[in-house]
């Protein structure tokens, strides 16, 4: 079933700025990456799904409910994590998440239980009784995620969840989001301007640019038949390239690496054999997915 479906969705702001134009997309449950540069219309799309702003034309349905007319029903099933800092400094995380749980309509005790449970799931334990003002950016992001989860939504809308995090923090946050999608059974829309980041955890991807849909598809269908093997040797890369070409492999050169399309299972063996015969030092041999980014650049050039 589609969790989000839009039909020619268009939003033009008062000043004549078109944030979204003619966006038609169907999204299945899972972890969905919503990528686009800053100002591409990602946040506008999220706000329309939350019923915070009405579309200028076209329609949108979330869980087959119209957020414009039945806002409450949609919002009860959706959790939203904004991009900016949105936490008061002088309350504890436990208290704050409990409070928002109650605003979402949970009874008092349920809100308290859900708050400590979600804070535990996002990885805040004893710290949750400390005031938020003393938290690191990573901890604040976790609190923001916990408040979106507290009322057990069926869909999470995360606006730039890795904003301001260091590389380790990014990985932890992405792993957490992946877990929410895979283990908790909650669909997640992850908004990001970093494609490389979301492609690692998403089942499907929506790319928008200038308010227009660039491409929407499942990650698996975007990257099939495009796996390559990356080979790196200490020196003698040229010799190896010649040898591999002789063996009938289509080799391409990428700086110090050789890229070999993995068309059959014995490609590994053949490369290894070539390397040993030439007595080269193998630095790395790994399977690499065609970066989704490459697909988009290819597509864009076609458009232009």
């Amino acid at each position: 079933m589609n969790i989000i479906a839009t039909q020619a969705l268009t939003k033009t702001y008062g000043g004549g700025v078109t944030a979204l134009s003619d966006l038609t997309v169907q999204v299945e449950a899972g972890v969905i990456g919503l990528v686009g540069a800053n100002g591409a219309g990602k946040s506008t799309f999220i706000k329309i799904m939350l019923g915070l702003i009405a579309p200028s034309s076209g329609s949108v349905r979330v869980f087959d409910i119209d957020p414009v007319t039945e806002t409450d029903k949609v919002r009860a099933r959706v959790g939203y994590m904004p991009e900016n800092d949105c936490l008061p400094p002088d309350v504890s995380a436990a208290e704050f998440v409990t409070h928002l749980g109650r605003i979402s309509g949970l009874p008092r005790t349920a809100a308290r239980e859900r708050a400590s449970e979600t804070l535990r799931h996002v990885g805040l334990y004893e710290e949750r009784y400390r005031q938020i003002g003393g938290y690191s950016t990573g901890m604040k992001q976790r609190v923001k995620l916990a408040q979106a989860l507290v009322h057990d939504p069926d869909l999470l809308l995360l606006d730039e969840p890795t904003n301001g995090l260091d590389p380790a923090g990014r990985d932890a946050m992405l792993a957490l989001i992946h877990r929410i999608g895979a283990e908790f059974g909650i669909s997640v829309v992850v908004c990001s301007h970093l494609l490389g980041e979301v492609e690692r955890i998403c089942d499907s991807l929506i790319a928008i640019q200038g308010g227009r849909l660039l491409r929407a598809d499942r990650i698996s269908s975007m990257t099939t038949a495009s796996d390559v093997l990356a080979v790196e040797v200490s020196d003698g890369a040229d010799e190896l390239a010649v040898r591999l070409t002789e063996m009938g492999l289509a080799v391409t050169r990428d700086h110090r690496m050789l890229l070999v399309p993995m068309d059959s299972d014995d490609a590994y063996d053949r490369i290894l054999r070539a390397v040993t015969e030439l007595e080269l030092h193998l630095h790395r041999l790994d399977q690499r997915r065609h970066r989704v980014a490459e697909l988009f650049t290819a597509k864009e050039t076609v458009d232009v």
């Binding site: 919002r75 008061p88 928002l100």
Partner: peptide, 14 residues
């Protein structure tokens, strides 16, 4: 609420 930007959290709820 204005200062700490908490309002989006309220208004994304019912």
């Amino acid at each position: 609420d204005l200062r700490s930007n908490t309002l989006p959290l309220y208004f994304s709820r019912p």
